[in-house]
Computed example of a mutant assay.
Amino acid sequence: MEVSSTLLFALMVVAALTSIQFYKGRKLNIQLMEHYLRSIEEIVKPEDKDYVWLGGYIGFRASYKVNRDNIRKFEYTLTLLPRHSLLYFPIALLTSRHDKIYFVIRPFAEIKREAHLIQKGYYRLSPNIENEDFLQRETIEIAGKEYEALYEKKRDVIKLKELVESLSKPHNVKHVSLTPKTNVFYVLMKPEPEAIERDVKKLVRFVNEKLRESAFSS
């Protein structure tokens, strides 16, 4: 089968663009990973740390032993858009939409009650919340976005709302929760390179100060 010169030229152009995108996208993702890693580690100051890379250029999972103040363990997973893939990147923009960072912070203080703030419309499928049927539910607004609040006591979700409002871009927070069964404070958000240090400081302060208060622990 004879390949036309036009088709051959088009294939060469696509191959060249794919190669350029790979090197540029890979470089940017590596720079982002290094930036987030250094910035978060500088704030958390772990006594021990462990990293697992996720597919080379799409992110990593970090686990820090802190054992200081009210933080026993600080874990997070960073997943980046596949900027190095010319063909898959547009699909990822539709499915994943943006870079994500998932914080899982395990305090020494015991979390006694469950509370969630979930940005409306973010999840295509509702997250699995074990005690959802027993939680009170209402809609609240934060920075022009509607969030579904699920809680046992209103004061808990008010504290979470205050935390979200204090972050650099509140609308970047997609889900924040307190889960007594696993004793975990959880935050899913879109990270911003220029604001990650400020935001992580706010999360650390929240755990060290607010999670010690009676509003959460009793």
Rank of each mutant, 00 (worst) to 15 (best):
M1S: 13
M1Q: 05
V3E: 14
A10R: 09
L11I: 14
L11S: 12
M12S: 13
V13L: 13
V13S: 08
A15F: 15
Q21A: 14
R26V: 12
L28T: 15
N29T: 07
I30T: 12
E34C: 02
E34L: 12
Y36T: 04
L37H: 14
R38L: 10
S39Q: 13
S39D: 12
P46W: 02
D50V: 09
Y57S: 10
Y57W: 13
I58M: 12
I58L: 14
G59S: 07
G59Y: 02
A62F: 06
S63E: 11
Y64S: 06
K65V: 09
I71C: 02
I71Y: 01
F74H: 04
Y76V: 04
T77F: 04
T77D: 07
L78A: 03
T79M: 13
P82D: 12
S85A: 14
S85R: 05
L87M: 13
Y88L: 15
F89V: 07
P90W: 14
A92E: 10
L94N: 11
T95H: 10
S96R: 15
I101H: 02
I101F: 03
F103W: 01
V104H: 11
I105R: 02
R106C: 09
R106V: 15
A109G: 04
I111R: 01
E114A: 07
Q119F: 06
G121R: 08
G121I: 10
R124C: 08
S126W: 08
P127M: 07
D133I: 07
F134H: 15
L135R: 03
L135N: 02
R137M: 05
I140M: 08
A143N: 14
A143G: 08
R155N: 04
R155W: 05
V164I: 15
V164S: 01
S166C: 08
L167H: 00
K169S: 11
P170E: 02
H175S: 11
L178D: 01
N183G: 09
F185K: 01
F185E: 00
Y186F: 11
V187K: 00
V187D: 03
E192G: 09
E194Y: 07
I196W: 04
I196G: 00
E197T: 15
D199K: 00
L203W: 07
F206R: 01
F206N: 02
V207Q: 03
V207F: 05
E213G: 10
A215N: 04
F216M: 05
S217M: 07
